[in-house]
């Protein structure tokens, strides 16, 4: 049996010592070669889970393994993470950022990055502070997707860009990831992302996985889109 790309066991995280945990005993296993949508209402712990996997947050309990290795320095080289906010030094130019990624990530493909920049019409010599919010997000996505990582973590990748750019970004995601790699996407814009998702997982409050499965299967068996199923599941959970 092949090693899963991600395995979380009994993962627990609370932001306050005596507060309600955002994640409580979460168990997740992600196989290789899938595009997975992690979907759920606000505050259910999607971003927290992604931050724990990427090493931004420290778990209170449980374990995280990426490609069989405990989360840490070595696994950071296997994970390509796109946060939901701008996180680069605005004084740097796009080409300086590319040089930075080349220096730190052995799997970074600068030719691929240059091509994507050209496709989106972004000047590599432009300083980040001179770019619009949407363009900054595109630059971030390009740098993240230009890596040949084992696990891509994309936190709200299309939230800040115009609808015209969304299609290109989604195509970038499908077109640039290695078939052996796994892409985990969190988003509220389910309808936009649905066409590229292979698998979905609905996360409820407390970080529990309420439902998960193949998108095609849901469409074929239940005759519903993931967007419709999401509305149904979370409507029920609000009323109950």
């Amino acid at each position: 049996m092949s090693i899963p790309v991600l395995q979380c066991k009994n993962l627990t995280k609370a932001y306050h010592k005596y507060g309600t945990p955002v994640l409580s005993g979460l168990n997740v296993t992600l196989p290789a070669g899938k595009i997975i949508g992690l979907l759920g209402p606000n505050g259910c712990g999607k971003s927290t889970l992604i931050k724990l996997i990427s090493g931004i947050l420290v778990p209170d309990g449980g374990s995280i393994e990426i490609c069989g290795q405990p989360q840490g320095e070595a696994t950071n080289a296997l994970v390509s993470y796109l946060p939901e906010r701008p996180y680069f030094d605005p004084r740097m130019s796009v080409s300086e950022l590319i040089a930075f990624f080349v220096d730190f990530y052995e799997d970074f493909d600068s030719t691929r990055a240059q091509k994507m920049l050209a496709d989106m019409g972004i000047d590599p010599n432009a300083k980040l502070r001179t770019l619009s919010k949407g363009t900054k997000e595109k630059v971030q996505l390009i740098l993240v997707m230009a890596r040949r990582a084992k696990l891509y973590l994309l936190d709200e990748p299309i939230a800040g860009v115009d609808p015209a750019a969304r299609d290109y970004i989604l195509q970038t995601i499908i077109g640039n990831y290695d078939p052996e790699a796994t892409v985990l996407i969190t988003t509220h814009l389910i309808h936009d992302v649905e066409p590229i998702l292979e698998t979905f997982a609905f996360m409820g409050y407390g970080g529990q996985i309420l439902r998960a499965g193949s998108c095609d299967e849901i469409r074929a068996v239940e005759g519903k889109s993931i967007d419709e199923l999401f509305r149904e599941v979370f409507k029920c959970s609000v009323n109950s």
Binding site: R85, P86, F104
Partner: peptide
Amino acid sequence: DEGYLTFTLP
């Protein structure tokens, strides 16, 4: 926010 880059470096 720059910490998101710093702490995800290998």
